[in-house]
Every structure is written in structure tokens, then in C-alpha cells.
Design a protein around this nucleic acid. Sequence first.
DNA 1: ATAAAACCTGAAGTCACTAGAGATTCAAGG
DNA 2: CCTTGAATCTCTAGTGACTTCAGGTTTTAT
Lengths: 140, 140
Amino acid sequence: MTDPSPTRGIGALADAAGCKVETIRYYEKIGVMPAPPRTRGGHRFYTHDHVKRLVFIRRCRGLGFGIDEIRELLGLVDGGDATCGQVREIVARHLAEVRRRLADLRAMQRMLAAAAAECEAGTPPACPFIDAVYGAGERA
Amino acid sequence: MTDPSPTRGIGALADAAGCKVETIRYYEKIGVMPAPPRTRGGHRFYTHDHVKRLVFIRRCRGLGFGIDEIRELLGLVDGGDATCGQVREIVARHLAEVRRRLADLRAMQRMLAAAAAECEAGTPPACPFIDAVYGAGERA
DNA sequence: ATAAAACCTGAAGTCACTAGAGATTCAAGG
DNA sequence: CCTTGAATCTCTAGTGACTTCAGGTTTTAT
């Protein structure tokens, strides 16, 4: 029932990881996925380990890690010495970045909501948003 | 004291708007900034209106608008018929996008904070983050 | 007059993919 | 065995919003 190592084509791998076929070939080219064995005809085929690795990469991307950060994480995994300390440092660094972006977006949201509200109430001849953004800072 | 139209070079314009010289040339190439007059030698020179326009563009970028959205906004400004209705629609559309990104980032933040906390408490042999992200979903 | 700073053009690099062209291979049915 | 259609192959170029580089020209200050 449970085949220990069901090899599969690139399409099946893509389905398993929830990404596109092209993305896998791209990951191979940039070196985060290993070059898999090929059939006589040249088609790639993958094992369960490949699935695990790709899913890991995709999850990290989903958490906002950049490829280089993922490379670091994978280096730790591959080296076998994935100590918490090193991982925690990478995660903490990234978390700080996420919080910065969050703060930026929140500021944007406030400004935009205010602008929209002003527009809502604005008198049609001129637009408060345009006036505020285009004209502000002039002759002030 | 107040020179009514102090023309300036591209460097001074960049300083006034808080961006790089190359960015201005890029904006000119893609058509959001007009091609300014030149000196005999071919150097661009700008007027007060250019400053206003560039500051507007930079503020919009700061609010997260994409170049194409800025193009729409500028079209309205240039046409003179910058009615609230049209602007409000663009702003509202963008605000929705910002809120989506906010939600995404908040989710990321939660996951990362949880991962970091687990790592903090984790026992050195294996790393909870790696286990969770790499191993999760397997044989579950 | 000369030297340093600013400016010019055009092409290529960034990030993480995505899309397309055109050829080949695989799996299934008859 | 043969054919068809889906899947896969390689390679190139495009996305957004710039940034960086190379190599040359102009301006400005001394």
C-alpha cells in the first residue's frame, strides 16, 4: 500500500508542493533544489526526499523568507548541524524585517483611509487627495 | 529672495524630491516625468513644476501605489478633471490591496513569532523550527 | 587653465518567478 | 506496432521599479 519510494515526474512534484513546474526547474537552476536523476529520454524524476525539500522551501517562501535566507536554512539542514541558535538568529532577523514592513503598511493604510474619507466628503471641483499629495509641501 | 522659477539641475531635483538621479531619468524614460529642456551641452534642467510633479510621484510610491496607478492619477491631474470620484476609486482599490498585504504580513508575523518562541525553548539536539517546517505534513 | 564634480547614454543586473516558442518523450488506447 | 495527446525538455525573454556600471562629456570652481 505504502510504496516506500514512489518516484514521480516534475508535474506530480509540482502538484505535491503546490507550485508550478517552471518554479522547480528555476529552483534547480539557482541551486536550492538538487539536479534529480533523469529517464533515458531526459525527463526528471523525483523521490520523497525531493518532495520534503521542496515543501520546506515553499513554506519558507510563504513565511516571506528570501531565497538567500532559505539557502542559509537549507545549508544548516544539509549540514546536519541545524542548531537552534543559528536558526533562531535567521528567524529573528526575518521577523524584525516583517515587523518593519508591517509598520510601513499600517502607516500607509492610515494615510489612505484618511485620504479616502476626505475624498468621500470632498467638494467635487477639486479633489482633496490630489491637493494634499500634489500640493502639500509647497509654499508651506 | 524668492526666485519665481529657479531652474536646477537633475541632482538638485533629486535632492529636493529625496530620490536618486537615476530614478528621475528612469521616470522620464517610462513617461511619468516629462522630458525637460536641456542646456547647450545636453544637461537637463528643471523648474518648480517638475519638483511638484516628482514629489507627487514619490509620495504616491511611498503610499505603495504602483507606477501604473500613479500614471492614472497623473492622467487625472494633467487632464485637469481630477474629480473625487475617479481618484477615490483608485485610492479605494489600492487601500484594499494594502489591507490584504497587511493581513498576509500579520499571519507571517504570528507564525514567525511562534517559531522563534519554540526555538527559544527548544532542546538543542534538533531544532523545532526546522522540524516544524521541514518535517511537518509528512507521515501525518 | 585645469581639475573635480556633475552629468550624459546605453546596457546589464536585481528578485523570484512567469510565459512563450519549438522540439522531444512518455503513457495509453486501438 | 502505431498513433495521439499530454507532459516534459531547453532556451530566451519579460515582469516592476529601479540600481549599477562603463566610458565619455560638460559644467563649475579655483
